[in-house]
């Protein structure tokens, strides 16, 4: 079981993440992670994070995917999915998220993209159950202090 990160404990992480770009050059330094690499096993009794995810937790990573339609325009986070979302779980009561999603907390405001547009998000990988205090959205895996760009 992964340790549940409290808000307090993830602040230093966030700070560390923010300072990193200044210390080292450009994007190439971030190890790539793909959606296929997130979990090592799937079971109805729970998923298991892969060794790669465990190793990269707390480090800055890049991952490509699609931005799900945001909960609201000013939300501080968005959900990154492997394929474009055909349903909107935020707006439809019978739609639901796939298992493999990544919540991305931005370090500054960015204009949300077309959900058809492939993007690459880069931020510090954080794992453990976390309830967004504003929206109540629960996530297991996140990027903190992230930015994204179109691919």
């Amino acid at each position: 079981m992964t340790q549940n990160l409290t808000r307090r404990s993830c602040l230093p992480l966030l700070a560390a993440a923010l300072s990193l770009p200044a210390l080292r050059p450009a994007a190439a330094a971030s190890p790539d992670l793909s959606f296929a690499e997130l979990y090592s096993s799937f079971s109805a009794l729970g998923l298991e994070f892969s060794d790669k995810v465990k190793q990269l937790t707390g480090r800055k990573v890049s991952i490509q995917g699609f931005m799900a339609p945001p909960l609201k325009a000013e939300a501080q986070f968005f959900v990154l999915t492997e394929i474009p979302m055909a349903l909107c779980p935020f707006c439809s009561t019978d739609a639901d998220w796939p298992d493999n999603i990544l919540v991305v907390y931005l370090d500054r405001k960015q204009t949300f993209t077309d959900p058809n547009q492939r993007i690459e998000a880069r931020g510090t990988l954080e794992r453990g159950s976390w309830t967004d205090p504003e929206t109540g959205f629960v996530s297991q895996l996140r990027l903190r202090g992230a930015r994204f760009a179109k691919v």
Binding site: L45, L47, D96, D99, S129, V138, Q140
Partner: peptide, 24 residues
């Protein structure tokens, strides 16, 4: 059937609950 995500407590990867209830 399916839908175990709502039986798992929020700490378990794959859970879609927001609380610590472990319905399994």
């Amino acid at each position: 059937g399916g839908g175990s995500a709502y039986f798992l407590n929020a700490e378990v990867p794959g859970s879609k609950r927001k609380d610590d209830k472990d319905y399994i």
